[in-house]
């Protein structure tokens, strides 16, 4: 597995797209800090970008890589190696290289602007952690889609649709249901609804540390008691972890029966 991980990792590291992705974050980080000159404020802006873009890039990269390396994969499958090892190697290779691009791309400008001297270091590391989680989750989801669809166009379509659903449509439906069910106590409902969308969950996780904590408390004790504590943080991270484990488990299950 590690050999395959190494191959796909270095393959991706050599590819142009990793550099483009890295450079994008690098430029973004510097521009944000140049415009704001305040690490704290830059983190809020960065949050908006990370929760939208990281899943998108993860999804597209995941699907693209699967379809592009299909021939090589088939070649590997002819060898006496376990299927799960091949695919887990590839999956980890993509996820780790994407995460590395993000962490380095954002880390360098923030460190250069004095992150270590700022109190925002905890928020920033949480942001990177959440970004890393989103990478792992969405690459896994993309692999799931690609494995289930032999047709490239269909696979891409579904992948983009999944991203669109989780990033935009889900929130829309959520908001409409909140407005529609206005007369009922909604705090528990919205708490649970956020758990079913990794993008929402990561957004709230960061916002709690930045500006939303008191605003949430305004609406009801349920939020405050849940999100305001360390227990809430740990639970949220645990659920993000589940969002990684379940798709990965499904990849492995799918692999066992798939006829290549």
């Amino acid at each position: 597995m590690f050999k395959i991980l190494k191959y796909s990792f270095f393959d991706l590291m050599r590819s142009r797209w990793s550099y483009v992705y890295f450079a994008f974050y690098l430029v973004l980080g510097f521009v944000l800090l140049f415009l704001n000159n305040d690490v704290d404020k830059a983190i809020i802006t960065l949050l908006n970008i990370i929760i939208v873009l990281t899943p998108l890039i993860g999804t597209i990269f995941g699907v693209m890589y699967y379809y592009n390396s299909k021939e090589f994969t088939e070649l590997l499958l002819a060898q006496p190696i376990k299927r799960s090892k091949i695919f887990m190697g590839q999956y980890l290779g993509i996820s780790i290289s994407l995460t590395l691009s993000m962490i380095l791309g954002l880390g360098i400008p923030f460190v250069a602007y004095g992150l270590f001297r700022s109190a925002a270091i905890f928020n920033f590391s949480l942001l990177l952690l959440v970004g890393a989680f989103l990478n792992f989750i969405f690459v896994a989801l993309a692999f799931n889609i690609a494995l289930s669809n032999e047709n490239k166009i269909k696979g891409f379509g579904f992948a983009i649709l999944m991203w669109l659903f989780l990033a935009v449509i889900y929130d829309g439906v959520f908001l409409i249901s909140l407005v529609f069910l206005n007369e009922y106590p909604l705090d528990k409902f919205s708490l649970i609804a956020t758990m079913f969308n990794p993008i929402d969950l990561s957004r709230i996780l960061i916002l709690l540390k930045l500006d939303i904590s008191a605003l949430l408390g305004y609406t009801g004790a349920v939020f405050k008691n849940f999100f305001g504590t360390n227990m809430g943080l740990l639970t949220s991270l645990g659920i993000l972890m589940l969002w990684v484990i379940i798709p990965v488990w499904r990849i492995n299950r799918k692999l066992r029966k798939k006829d290549f």
């Binding site: 809020i44 949050l47 908006n48 929760i51 939208v52 990033a167 935009v168 449509i169 929130d171 829309g172 959520f174 908001l175 909140l178 407005v179 909604l186 705090d187 409902f189 919205s190 956020t194 929402d200 957004r203 709230i204 916002l207 939303i212 605003l215 949430l216 305004y218 609406t219 009801g220 939020f223």
Partner: peptide
């Protein structure tokens, strides 16, 4: 008021 959980969402 519960809709505040959607603060800073793309939607």
């Amino acid at each position: 008021p519960e809709a505040i959980v959607l603060l800073r969402s793309l939607f």
